[in-house]
């Protein structure tokens, strides 16, 4: 009994360490800048004080919209390429298949910063700097290797006979992919989509490089609240709450799909 109690205390302590910044941020979002710096601290703010949110959204709603558009498009574009690619790598027979799969993965080994300058040059040359399509392409591209590999593992888990049965029943490859492989890999697709979504939504580095004004995403806006002369903690806090909400909601929605087991009962082992 005693050890269980200590374990609980330890668990709460560790959890507190991790949750503290978020807690501080939530509290700060409802304070004025003076309350944030006040000594003794204002522990519990007035939660009806919404000026920070109002100010933030009235000036920056279009960047939040940018973030939404870029994230959803990048996720969709990434899946549109990754899923057929993974399907082909798993089911088609061709030479250098494994080499190709490894090569796709190897591109993941490069840090994104290494590509930042070349990407800047490319999009500059294409006249696409500070446009959302540039960000969509960059984000989808960066996530492709990961998405392909995860999707491959999910396609591999589909019993081979089910794919073969579809082909004998008259499906071409595309129909087999759409009518059989995709529904059976649903949980895998949800997993991939969640990861790509979170990456694209939170990405800052490339967005700083590739956008200036029009296509700025929300993380770029948040970073701009810390200036040389002043840090707007109240705005940063409010913006961060808005920033973390979509991934949390998205993950909760996808959670039940991520729990797999859909192929149970398909094949008797």
């Amino acid at each position: 009994m005693k050890s269980v109690r200590w374990q609980l205390i330890a668990a709460f302590a560790i959890t507190f360490v991790f949750v503290a910044p978020i807690l501080w941020m939530v509290l700060a979002a409802f304070k004025t800048i003076n309350d944030i710096y006040a000594i003794p601290p204002v522990w519990v703010p007035d939660f009806t004080y919404l000026e920070n949110f109002k100010l933030l959204l009235s000036e920056n709603w279009q960047f939040l919209l940018n973030s939404t558009i870029v994230t959803l498009s990048a996720t969709a574009l990434c899946l549109a390429f990754a899923l057929p690619c993974a399907f082909g790598l798993v089911y088609f027979q061709f030479g250098a298949k494994n080499f190709l799969a490894d090569w796709i993965l190897s591109t993941r080994m490069m840090p994104p910063i290494a590509a930042a300058v070349p990407l800047y040059m490319v999009f500059n040359g294409a006249g696409m700097l500070d446009t959302m399509p540039a960000l969509v392409i960059a984000y989808a591209g960066f996530n492709l290797p990961f998405a392909v590999w995860v999707a491959m593992s999910f396609f591999r888990n589909i019993p081979k006979e089910i794919i073969e049965a579809a082909r004998i029943e008259g499906c071409g490859w595309f129909q087999t992919f759409r009518l059989v492989a995709l529904p059976l890999a649903k949980s895998g697709i949800a997993t991939v989509a969640t990861f790509v979504f979170i990456f694209a939504w939170n990405e800052l580095l490339l967005a700083l490089f590739l956008t200036t004004r029009e296509a700025k995403t929300f993380p770029v806006v948040i970073s701009s609240f810390s200036t040389v002369t002043k840090t707007y903690w109240e705005l940063i806090s409010a913006a961060t709450i808005i920033q973390i909400l979509p991934p949390v909601i998205f993950t909760i929605l996808m959670q039940r799909h991520i729990v797999s087991g859909l192929t149970m009962g398909a094949v008797k082992n």
Binding site: P159, I162, E164, A165, I168, K186, L262, V267, K268, N269
Partner: peptide, 15 residues
């Protein structure tokens, strides 16, 4: 090929 096959594992579409 217009053939039909029954597999050992049945290979029904589970979804």
């Amino acid at each position: 090929r217009g053939l039909a096959m029954v597999f050992q594992s049945y290979a029904l579409f589970p979804h």
